[in-house]
């Protein structure tokens, strides 16, 4: 549970559209990391990496690292040259479930990531559903026998029916 302080109020527990701040507060970073989906017991580890390895002392810095890293993953995986905004990067990271992986992952060289992880992080995979490939599914007729009328013709593998085909 987040501490009850004015800091928590001001940044709405990690609203990525508002929380980026240059204020070097550990609480902000903690909120940011939690909002990425990291379990509570790994938040400290991730903050440690942010501070020691990337020099990210603020949420701004951390978000910038995330955006750069996610953009690099996209470049390595599908050659996507776009630069992601911190907001898009955060949403993509969250939807990929990457916070369940090792906490080193976020600080690893994108080219060293397993292809499956790169695919999961790339922009195209961070939707909740895949592209549609529709198949029509008409409602069937469950009415009783239509004696004396022509039966509907349907393709079948090997039709079995006790009804006459009149």
């Amino acid at each position: 549970m987040i501490r009850h302080t004015a800091d928590a109020r001001a940044f709405g527990a990690g609203d990525t559209s508002h929380a980026y701040t240059s204020e070097p507060s550990r609480l902000h970073l903690e909120t940011f990391v939690r909002d990425l989906g990291y379990p509570a017991e790994r938040v400290d580890e991730v903050i440690f990496h942010f501070r020691r390895e990337r020099g990210a002392m603020t949420v701004d810095d951390a978000a910038e690292h995330l955006a750069e890293w996610m953009s690099a993953v996209g470049r390595v995986h599908v050659g996507d040259e776009r630069s992601l905004t911190p907001e898009d990067a955060t949403a993509s990271f969250v939807l990929s479930g990457a916070a369940m992986w090792h906490s080193d992952t976020l600080f690893a060289d994108p080219s060293a990531l397993p292809p499956a992880h790169r695919a999961a992080l790339s922009a195209a995979s961070t939707t909740v559903v895949p592209l549609e490939s529709p198949l029509p599914m008409p409602a069937q007729d469950l009415a009783g026998p239509r004696w004396g009328r022509r039966r509907r013709t349907e393709p079948s593998v090997h039709r079995v029916s006790w009804m006459s085909s009149r």
Partner: peptide
């Protein structure tokens, strides 16, 4: 729970939620 599952199974298969 879905985001967590997606993360856990990322290296195995895709998991979609609709």
């Amino acid at each position: 729970a879905w985001t967590e599952l997606r993360g856990h199974l990322a290296s195995i298969c895709r998991v979609y939620y609709r």
